Amino acid sequence: MAKAGPILILEDDHDDREIYGQIMASLGVKNEIKFFEGGDDLLRYLQVTPDRPFIILSDINVPRMSGIELMRQIDADEFLRKKSIPFVFLTTVESKEVVDEAYELAIQGYFVKKDLLEDIEKQVRQILDYWRDCKHPNA
């Protein structure tokens, strides 16, 4: 994890992407923000990029490869697993079965998106602050 590295966001909803962009600007985030519509796109990026991403914020229900399947692929790939990129779900899915399935993988958090912009901003701030302060093997 490189604290100055890009923040990778897996989100297919255009409105949610705009919200995340507004939040990052409001929080004064200096990291580059990279959006991906499908898990397959993000996986390909991780496999070839020399970038050292700061964090992955992932929705679950996205086209072509879900957030859960993306995390499975990362976990199964020794090269990607050793990058130790914090992986956090930020999604509308509240199902206990999905939460249980997510935590069977090597994720570092599962948050249900709030409805109000100010509440989503608070969630994102908490997540980013935690990982900025956290000691990490790839920092």
Rank of each mutant, 00 (worst) to 15 (best):
I60R: 00
K122T: 12
R64H: 12
A25F: 12
G67V: 04
F87K: 02
I68R: 00
K83I: 12
E97A: 15
S58M: 01
I23M: 01
R64Q: 07
E18G: 13
E97L: 15
D51H: 07
E69R: 11
D51M: 02
P63W: 01
R52N: 05
I120Q: 08
I127W: 00
R52V: 14
K83L: 11
S58W: 03
G28K: 05
D129L: 11
F89G: 04
K135G: 15
F36Y: 03
D51N: 05
F35G: 03
E78C: 13
R132D: 12
K135A: 15
D129E: 11
V48I: 14
L90M: 11
I56M: 02
T91K: 01
S58K: 02
E78K: 14
K83A: 06
D41W: 08
A106T: 14
Y45T: 09
P50N: 09
Q22R: 14
D133W: 11
Q108P: 04
I127P: 03
D115A: 13
V98T: 10
D59M: 03
K122P: 12
S66Q: 00
T92D: 06
L117N: 07
M24C: 07
R52I: 14
A102E: 06
Y103V: 04
V29W: 05
V88W: 04
S26R: 10
V98D: 04
L27W: 05
K135L: 15
E118T: 13
D77H: 04
S66Y: 04
L42E: 01
G21K: 13
V124E: 00
D100K: 13
G38R: 10
E18R: 15
V99Y: 14
K83Y: 03
G109C: 06
I120L: 06
M24I: 06
L90P: 09
I127C: 06
K34G: 09
I107G: 03
W131P: 05
L128N: 07
S95P: 01
I107E: 00
E18Q: 13
K34V: 15
S26Y: 08
Q47R: 09
N31H: 07
I60G: 00
Y20P: 05
I68T: 03
R52F: 10
I68C: 00
G21W: 06
R125G: 07
F79W: 12
Q108I: 11
I60H: 01
N138C: 12
I60L: 01
Y130W: 11
V29H: 05
Q47W: 09
V29A: 06
S66I: 07
D100A: 15
E94S: 13
R132K: 12
L116P: 07
R64E: 06
M24R: 06
I68D: 01
I23K: 02
P50T: 15
I85W: 04
Q73C: 10
S84F: 15
R44P: 09
